[in-house]
């Protein structure tokens, strides 16, 4: 199986009838770093939540590594949501124990190495840390798993450029060969250089899915420039 994600006619309608994801058919190749790109409200987070089992599709089917979404797929997905989701009364040490207990692929040594590198004391409770430090701890936990599929929702939104560099280098340097990374963002210029492929979402539909190199050659412009052009046109 060379595909990490397979969707057929995937649709998600909310209670108001609005189709956040509208009949998507998409196959993502394993072993690539893929950008999930689109403006706010294009359906990126909804798609990610369905992949991670936090939302149930209204119609269509979704498979991760050939498996329907469930405990088995959750065991191979390392998910970074767009907000802090850790219990703030726990110490970093306790959270590492928690992750190590549930995820067979969690590398404890790697987590402590990254914490040491950032001079974060694992005995500190999360609630005593700044928002930025908490986000770094969360990223460390997610990237300390030797997962087959990393799903990162807006990992660089709302952080300063130096932190963006740290986050991207952490992601790229910790991914094992063969693993897939799906990064959702609208800050394309910051991540374009690490992407192998890009999926453009537009009003809940896939507007474009191709290798970044192909896009550059075919369009004669960067992915960021193309993105700005497409969505500026949409705005007009």
């Amino acid at each position: 199986m060379n595909e990490i994600l397979t969707c057929y006619g995937l649709t998600k309608r909310y209670s108001n009838g609005f189709p956040a994801i509208d009949n998507i058919t998409l196959n993502l190749n394993a072993g690539r770093i893929i950008g999930l790109l689109g403006p706010n409200g294009s359906g990126k987070t909804t798609l990610i939540k369905m992949i991670c089992g936090l939302l149930t599709p209204t119609a269509g089917s979704l498979y991760v590594a050939g498996l329907p979404v469930g405990p088995q797929t959750k065991a191979i997905i390392s998910y970074l949501p767009d907000q802090t989701y850790l219990n703030d009364w726990m110490t970093v040490h306790q959270i590492i124990d928690y992750f190590a207990d549930f995820y067979a692929d969690f590398d404890v040594m790697r987590a402590y190495e990254m914490l040491t590198g950032l001079q974060i004391d694992p005995n500190n409770r999360l609630k005593t840390m700044s928002k930025g430090t908490r986000e770094k701890v969360q990223l460390i936990l997610v990237m300390s798993r030797r997962a087959r599929f990393y799903v990162l929702d807006e990992p660089i939104a709302g952080v300063d450029p130096a932190a963006r560099d740290y986050i991207l280098s952490t992601i790229v340097s910790n991914v094992d060969p063969g693993a897939t990374v799906l990064i959702s963002t609208h800050l394309i210029s910051d991540i374009e250089h690490v992407l192998h492929e890009a999926v453009f979402l537009q009003q809940g539909r896939v507007a474009l899915y191709d290798a970044v190199e192909n896009i550059r050659k075919r369009e004669g412009k960067s992915v960021d420039e193309l993105f700005r052009e497409v969505y500026r046109c949409l705005g007009n």
């Binding site: 405990p71 959750k74 907000q83 989701y85």
Partner: peptide, 17 residues
Amino acid sequence: RSLYSKEGYLTFTLPVG
């Protein structure tokens, strides 16, 4: 808190039913 607040993102993505 553990199910329906932000912590739910962790609880419901654990590899359990």
